[in-house]
């Protein structure tokens, strides 16, 4: 579901960039202003965080989760892998604050370790897919013609592909492990990023200063890194905060379909799934990872919305 939203946002943005209405800063053909765009973006984000408490709290939550994930091995109360069959599916006690799972393993410790997988699954595929999207978008925008046509049709194929099915197919094909999940979640989701970067490139290519730069023989690389990419950054940041939560949730869906994280390591999605059988007898078992997941994803969503308010160029005052 969230995929459609991303697609829509990307379409929306691509259209706006193409349309390049009067509010748009880039219409002032001022190369210096273009470069400083990046600085103003950071400034706006800072201002937004100051005024938007929810986004601020979200950011703190995300940082806290990242810290837990990084230092998990140092702060876990018990060995998350140690099986203790006589003490399986027990409610919270002083020793096991969130109780134990179906093997008698400490849920709190597993939750802390699981945050690593969940975070990585959120971040890595996002970075990969956006990387692919940026490169292909630039190539399409710069080359135009046949190359552009082919890349954009490829993007159509990716947009049309049922994503969960594709993820299942990939994991069936290359086996089930974390790497598979990265590939499965990133390989078809680059299309939206590519559309935006392409639109941005096309628009800038027509600008006099870029044309001038090209004509006097400035290297393409310079143009890309100095002018085009900085202009994409705000959109990319927003896209990033939309991709991450949707990837985290996709992994939980994959766990439900049996192709998520692999034991004995665990992700929050897998924990929710495995403990859901015990909803009646040990509700904490499924509620704790579920709520953790909800909070993390919600935090990403809130932060993303705040960022969008702050940096979406068409929304600024």
């Amino acid at each position: 579901m969230t995929n459609f939203e991303k697609d829509q946002y990307q379409r929306d943005l691509a259209a706006r960039i193409n349309a390049a209405d009067g509010n748009y800063q880039y219409t002032e053909d001022n190369a210096l202003a273009e470069i400083s765009e990046l600085d103003t973006t950071w400034q706006r984000i800072k201002n937004m965080l100051k005024s938007n408490k929810v986004a601020m709290v979200s950011l703190i939550v995300i940082i806290a989760i990242i810290l837990i994930a990084v230092f998990a091995p140092l702060i876990i109360p018990c060995d998350p892998y140690e099986i203790d069959l006589p003490n399986r599916i027990k409610g919270p006690t002083a020793e096991h604050l969130l109780g134990t799972d179906e093997f008698g393993r400490d849920i709190l410790s597993r939750l802390m370790m699981g945050s690593r997988v969940s975070l990585v699954v959120g971040l890595v595929p996002t970075i990969i897919s956006m990387g692919i999207g940026i490169v292909l978008g630039l190539v399409a925008g710069f080359s135009g013609g046949k190359v552009d046509f082919i890349i954009m049709r490829l993007a159509d194929v990716c947009l049309a592909f049922p994503s969960i099915l594709f993820a299942m197919l990939v994991s069936y094909t290359i086996g089930q492990n974390l790497l598979t999940i990265f590939v499965a979640l990133s390989i078809i989701s680059w299309a939206g990023t590519a559309r935006i970067v392409r639109a941005q490139t096309l628009q800038l290519k027509e600008k006099e200063f870029v044309e001038a730069a090209i004509s006097i023989g400035v290297k393409k690389r310079t143009i890309i890194f100095k002018h085009i990419l900085p202009n994409c950054v705000p959109h990319l940041i927003v896209l990033f905060t939309m991709h991450v939560p949707s990837n985290i949730l996709s992994e939980s869906s994959l766990s439900f379909l049996g192709v998520g994280a692999q034991p004995p390591s665990t992700s929050w999605g897998l924990m929710v799934f495995k403990m859901k059988e015990f909803l009646a007898s040990q509700p904490v078992g499924t509620l704790a990872p579920g709520i953790a997941l909800l909070i993390m994803v919600l935090a990403f969503n809130f932060l993303g919305d705040g960022l969008r308010d702050a940096i979406d160029p068409t929304l600024k005052d």
């Binding site: 179906e102 093997f103 299942m168 086996g175 049996g258 192709v259 692999q262 034991p263 004995p264």
Partner: peptide, 24 residues
């Protein structure tokens, strides 16, 4: 999966490092 996870841990005691491979 539960049996496999448990056996995976039991095998550790006899120097077997078992990996659970899930395929469709």
């Amino acid at each position: 999966l539960n049996i496999n996870e448990a056996v995976q841990q039991m095998l550790k005691q006899i120097y077997i490092d078992a990996e659970i491979v899930q395929v469709d």
